[in-house]
């Protein structure tokens, strides 16, 4: 397998996920299979192919610099687990 359970641990930590031992083994297998599948692309000769920046052939989609009304604050905060002084309240971030 390309991905070891320890690497799953690391990726899970970056994504703030807590996984059981069993889940780690399952995801190690899944992620390995995905990498192996994607690896088939390296069989192609891509020397003369520009790296793809986007799957669509569009470019330069812009908007003008105009202010439009924002969301009502009550609506914005309605999904917040905790609110204080018009702000989202989160566990203290210690630096």
């Amino acid at each position: 397998m390309r991905i070891k359970p320890e690497e799953v641990d690391y990726i899970a930590a970056l994504s703030r996920l807590v996984l059981s031992e069993q889940e780690k083994n399952i995801y190690a297998r899944h992620l390995s299979e995905i990498l192996e599948h994607a690896e088939r692309l390296s069989e192609l000769d891509t020397d003369d192919v520009e790296p793809t920046a986007h799957v669509l052939s569009l470019k330069n989609i812009f908007r003008d610099d105009e202010v439009k009304p924002s969301l009502e604050r009550d609506i914005l905060l309605s999904n917040a687990p905790e609110v204080e002084n018009g702000c989202f309240k989160v566990p203290r971030i210690v630096e």
């Binding site: 905790e82 204080e84 002084n85 018009g86 702000c87 989202f88 309240k89 989160v90 566990p91 203290r92 971030i93």
Partner: peptide, 9 residues
């Protein structure tokens, strides 16, 4: 805010 922080986006 004690054990919390407030966020303004």
């Amino acid at each position: 805010w004690g054990n919390n922080s407030l966020v303004d986006y």
